[in-house]
Computed example of a mutant assay.
Amino acid sequence: MKVENKNIVVTGGGNGVGREVVLKLLSKGARVIAIDINKSALEETYKISGGSDKLLTRVVNITDKKAVLDFAEEIIGTLGYIDGVINNAGIIQPFVQLKDLTFEQIDKVMDVNFYGTLYMTKAFLNHLLTRPEAHIVNIASMGGFFPVPGQSAYGASKAAVKIMTEGLYSELSDTNVHVSVVFPGGIATDIKKNSQLTNESASEKEKNSKLILSPSAAAEKIISGMEKNKYKFCIGKDSNLMDFMYRINPGFATKVIKRALGSKIH
């Protein structure tokens, strides 16, 4: 679905990849509704956009089902229609083994990553089916198709997004609604800090790694895949590499990632 002149909702639009997706959609002629739980972050996105009259912002807690349903009703009533939803918002867990995670940490990761995506999808789905053409893009993770030690709960939440989106693609394959699931690798954002489950930020070494995508590059690839109506696609060298390795030899790929990340688990 070409994004020009379309009304598109983006979750997590206050920072990182979500902010870059918002800005690139605007540059391509879309009207964007950016939502985030952080009001000041949304205000910064609006400021960076130059105060674009094609950008609307709303503070929404996507883990609150009623809030999401109310938002969908309000924004459809305000604009008349929505053509696309990009479910980008997500958080990670601290790099610790499952035995050391609290149930509260697990619940928060699952609530944001899976249930938030599910609520947003359900809130707009029936409306999208009335549009001449529409698109749902759900951002999973390379951790959603192979195991990352120290990120078991996060991986489970993204695997749930993967399977839910794949099922939705099948259900909607003969309709006007396109469905995409995206598997990013490492991206140079402050998702660790923004997740509020850890005070860590991405290190300079991580941000400068040749395997790590910039938020801008990631956003460009997400929108490009959307416009090409891609069903499933990886973005980032690390995601593509691990996808290939895991298909060829899952056991070997699991050992490789364990050796690479084992030192981060504490």
Results as ranks from 00 to 15, higher is better:
I106A: 13
V182S: 00
N87K: 08
N88E: 09
N208A: 15
V60Y: 07
T175F: 05
V256F: 15
A253E: 02
G12Q: 03
G50F: 05
K47L: 13
Q151W: 07
N249M: 06
A67E: 10
L172M: 00
V59C: 06
N87P: 12
N113Y: 01
R247S: 10
F146S: 11
K39Q: 10
K210S: 06
G51V: 15
H178S: 04
I106M: 11
L261Q: 10
N138L: 10
A30F: 02
T45V: 12
K6A: 01
D238I: 08
E206A: 08
V32C: 13
K6I: 09
V21G: 11
K232M: 13
S170K: 11
V181N: 00
K162C: 14
A188K: 00
S141A: 10
T254Y: 03
M110R: 09
F252W: 12
Q93H: 10
A188L: 05
G186S: 10
I223T: 00
K255I: 14
L25P: 02
K66H: 12
K108F: 14
E43S: 07
T11S: 14
G90W: 01
S239C: 07
A160L: 10
R131F: 03
Y169I: 12
G13K: 02
E104H: 07
V3A: 01
G29P: 01
A159Q: 06
T189H: 06
K237A: 11
